[in-house]
Amino acid sequence: MNNVFVYCEIEGTTVVDVSLELLSKGRKLANTLGVQLECICAGKGLDGIEKQVFPYGVDKVHVFDAEGLFPYTTNPHAALVVNLFKEEQPQICLLGATVIGRDLGPRISSAMHSGLTADCTELEIDSFEMSIGGVKKAYENQLCQIRPAFGGNIVATIVNPEHRPQMATVREGVMKKEIVDPNYKGEVIKHDVAKYVPETEYVVKVLERHVEKAKHNLKGAPIVVAGGYGMGSKENFDMLFELAKELHAEVGASRAAIDAGFADHDRQIGQTGVTVRPKVYIACGISGQIQHLAGMQDSGIIISVNSDPDAPINAIADYVINGTVEEVIPKMIKYYKANNK
């Protein structure tokens, strides 16, 4: 009762990264609150799934293993989570801000009449006074959910003191994945799925499904070379791939560059793409609109290559190179090769 829950998203029989990141965050929240961390794994063929999550400090894994639970469809997953929550009364529930998490989260929150905060960038426990419905009260140990909104132009702290569970979704790459103890052991509870999911919930049929494995590791790369609309062409983007190859970096892009066809969709960095926090971020021909900054502002060292000395990104850069990408990038490649011995 009253524990922290994470809904683990499962692709095939693998718990996806964002869920492991949330387990790490969930562990910390549970420690602060002095409660346990529990998680839900629902899918098909999940024998041994607990081994994937225990190292992150999970105390209890709720396994729902049945035909019909993979591929994910809304109703069966919503039914099992809601029915489990009615028994377990969690105080916090975290989900990935993925297609699945954003399909499932609101469904659960509606059924439980609880608040759900989307796309949080920070989660903290805090105590405060607040007046709700005209009555001022002290609230202890609440989940403060911090999220950008308004196209990234504001950041709001949202709390839901009067309703449980406090639910939040978080994008991939925002929280850090951290193993607590490779030998951590929790409890595995295998549930009778039929008890939680009436047969009538299996209403949507997945006829066809194509998922491609990510072709790169943008999120985990220590160095990111990112190109924007200022790169001018797909051909010029090849220079970035060349520089990235030398630096053992990955290539990212702004949305404007992707919309222009310079790079693939899955390389988008920013509010509606991936969040990265590499050691070094090299922004080439990127102006630095707020939605882009949202996905890279926590990078260690930011280098901006831009022909406009007043480009907004320069304000958060550690190094600004005033010049065109056509001139500067080949020089970077040349002098890296010459000096890296």
Partner: peptide, 27 residues
């Protein structure tokens, strides 16, 4: 159920940055 406890407008803090030219020496 949700309550906005605080709203902050985003202002990106300018960092101390070094400005370079595109010259060979600078790069």
């Amino acid at each position: 159920p949700t309550n906005v406890k605080a709203v902050k407008n985003i202002v990106f803090k300018a960092k101390e940055s070094r400005t370079l030219t595109a010259s060979d020496a600078d790069v």
